[in-house]
Write a protein that binds this DNA or RNA. Structure first.
Length: 653
DNA sequence: CATTTTAAT
DNA sequence: CTGCATTAAAATG
């Protein structure tokens, strides 16, 4: 799946088959039926399997009706209906405009499209081998490891809403994102398990450990999905992509007891589509060959493409585009009807083009930090203020963790009717404290209350964008890191020039090494004692909060684990120097990091002992996350050497 | 142009 | 009928 962290499968996800038949309902008149057709289709979702041919259509109808009947009347449903009507209107406008366009001369648009196609064709890159790996019903699979007796029973993981369910439950029409009570109607025997994020994260790390052996710079797209570029691996091991992936999947299964599906193709977009072709526990290869790709896309429903959601799908369908191949014959309409960007995106789809750059998730930059929560309908202004205050405090914690401030503040509100509103303000200075967050958001809330008297909320959220880093020179400066660029500072990117080091108020200048790396014996003893004490008591000031995974939410940016098998490549340099104690260490990344962890713990203690504020301590971050993530992404202080992995041989592995 | 909303994942 | 994070574009003024 994509960017944001998502539960392995989200309501919007189209991991499975789009049920084309969801829209027919012979029991109603065409007119009456059409009222709810699109909505039923939407509610039905994408998870009915293609297995079982004959009965499938009937089953789909039954499932569709059950969901519909269970849902209708609820506020949520009403809102969905309203949204659906709005969309229908919008589509009517588009169709109207299309009729108008038909009276005009579109040769200019046609030429533009043809030029674009020609130009994109020239840039087609078939040299890379990209793999998309997707764990099968991940949460359910992990739970099943602990409860093997569930294997043949329909079960799901989640609370009020199914986060995922096993394939047995899917046969009944259950799917991720479905309300539990609806799922129960479809499948009364459904077993519902609570979420266990710690377990899933731990298991995900095991899987990633294996992935790292095939591409250390693989990209985690979510907890259970990843992209790899195995071009180099295949070359070095003289393997065919299919065999390499087969082997990788077997290795994953052997080491983690989790099955994964994989897609192998020339770029990420295609690989993602392919990983769904033989799911579960299968793989699919689309050859790196233009004709094969064009043929593949020609019959592919656009909805299968990452980036096409229910809205665009419907728009395209009504225009007449049912497959990516159809895009070509409508190319002159796309820009005027759907806009420049959608047009370009669709041409890419038609051609089967996508990115071939795969990079670790931690190298992406965070653009905003926010938090929101749902609660029982609330309209009392005093309570709302309390809630806002609380939200501000939550956000402050998250921003502390993220070590940033922000210049714009967004208030999000969902009414009891499920209508969503957001309002934002640009604040005079970058803020991060609960006080600031509260005081600047309060007027917005007040204004909203004024706009709609007696508004009843079910959700409130705060979010901060236009981020600026507040990272202090502690850990980072240690290693001579300079701050990552912020959004505002996009110009000077990551290039390590000596000037930018001085620019940021001098905070980022390198610390004198001797002072940093030396600890007198007495202090050392104190520190060691404190580390032990802290570890036993789980002292919050020293134990970084990030390690408490219950509190973590949202996109988890976990650094890639180092490849587990040391492989055959011999490291040129025999020793890596610890940047803290300066002593040479064995060139084993895991041990090296362990050693650094130890040194860092001492350093943390020293900070705590010397300086006063304990709240600074967590700034070190989890040893496993913050520190290593920097290791992973930035210059690895010369050693081990980081090279562009696409071209050069990798350093560890 | 900046701000707000919407769609998507 | 959750709950997050993040992007990007369209709509709006």
């Amino acid at each position: 799946m994509t960017a944001p962290t998502q539960p392995p499968e989200t309501p919007g996800a189209r991991t499975e088959e789009p049920p084309e038949t969801g829209r027919e309902d012979p029991t109603q008149t065409p007119k009456a039926a059409s009222e709810h057709d699109t909505l039923k289709y939407h509610l039905l979702g994408p998870s009915l399997t293609k297995a079982g041919q004959d009965s499938v259509d009937q089953k789909k109808v039954r499932v569709s009706e059950t969901i519909f009947n269970a849902s209708k009347g609820s506020k949520f449903f009403n809102r969905e209906e309203a949204k659906d009507r709005i969309l229908t209107q919008k589509i009517d406008q588009i169709l109207q405009k299309k009729r108008h366009l038909d009276t005009l001369d579109l040769s200019r648009e046609l030429r533009h499209a043809d030029n674009l196609v020609a130009q994109l064709e020239l840039s087609r890159d078939l040299s890379q081998c990209i793999v998309h790996v997707d764990c099968d019903a991940f949460y359910a699979a992990v739970e099943q490891l602990d409860r093997p007796e569930l294997k043949d029973l329909p079960f799901a993981v989640g609370g009020g809403v199914l986060t995922t369910c096993n394939y047995v439950a899917r046969k009944y029409g259950c799917r991720s994102g479905m309300a539990s009570f609806v799922a129960k109607k479809l499948c009364p025997d459904l077993v519902l398990l609570k979420l266990n994020f710690d377990k899933y994260n731990a298991k995900a790390q095991e899987v990633r450990q294996v992935l790292a052996g095939y591409d250390p710079r693989f990209e985690s797209a979510s907890i259970d999905e990843a992209y790899l570029n195995i071009t180099q691996y295949c070359a070095e091991n003289d393997m065919q992509p299919e065999d390499a992936v087969q082997q990788m999947r077997r290795e994953i299964h052997e080491k983690t007891r989790i099955t994964v599906s994989a897609g192998i193709a020339a770029n990420a977009k295609l690989a993602k589509i392919c990983s769904n072709m033989n799911k579960p526990n299968g793989q699919f290869l689309l050859p790196n060959n233009r004709a094969a790709i064009m043929k593949f896309m020609a019959s592919l429903p656009p909805r299968k493409v990452n980036g096409v959601g229910r809205v665009l799908e419907r728009q395209l369908s009504e225009i007449g585009i049912k497959t990516c191949g159809d895009i070509y014959q409508y190319r002159q309409y796309l820009s005027p009807l759907l806009g420049e960007k959608a047009y370009e995106f669709l041409i890419h789809c038609y051609l089967g083009l996508g990115r071939t750059r795969i990079q670790p998730a931690e190298e992406y930059e965070r653009k905003s930090v926010g938090t929101e929560s749902t609660f029982q309908d609330m309209s009392d202004p005093v309570k709302l203020r309390e809630k806002l205050r609380w939200t501000a405090e939550e956000l402050e914690k998250d921003m502390k963790k993220a070590e940033c401030k922000g210049r714009t503040l967004v208030l999000k509100v969902k009414l009891h009717t499920f209508e969503v509103y957001t309002r934002q303000v640009v604040v005079p200075k970058a803020i991060c404290t609960a006080d600031d967050l509260y005081t600047y958001s309060l007027p917005i809330l007040a204004k909203l209350e004024q706009e709609m008297a007696g508004m009843k909320l079910r959700l409130m959220g705060l979010r901060v964008t236009q981020l600026e880093s507040t990272k202090k020179p502690d850990t980072m400066a240690f290693f001579g890191f300079r701050p990552r660029k912020t959004t505002a500072d996009a110009s000077s990117a990551t290039a390590p020039d000596p000037e930018s080091a001085k620019r940021d108020n001098g905070v980022w200048e390198q610390w004198p090494e001797e002072e940093m790396y030396q600890l007198d014996d007495e202090l050392q003893a104190q520190a060691d004692a404190a580390v032990q004490a802290a570890q036993q008591e789980g002292d919050a000031a020293i134990t970084p909060r990030g390690s408490d995974s219950r509190r973590r939410h949202g996109k988890e940016i976990v650094p890639n684990p180092s490849p587990c098998k040391p492989d055959t490549k011999v490291e040129e340099e025999t020793w890596w120097d610890c940047p803290i104690c300066n002593r040479p260490q064995t060139p084993d990344e895991r041990r090296f990091n362990d050693h650094i962890d130890l040194c860092l713990s001492r350093q943390t203690i020293r900070d705590v002992v010397h300086e006063e504020v304990p709240s600074r301590a967590p700034a070190l971050g989890t040893p496993e996350t913050t520190r290593k993530s920097k290791f992973g992404s930035e210059k690895k202080r010369g050693r081990p050497p980081t090279v562009d992995p696409r071209q050069k041989k990798l350093c560890f592995g």
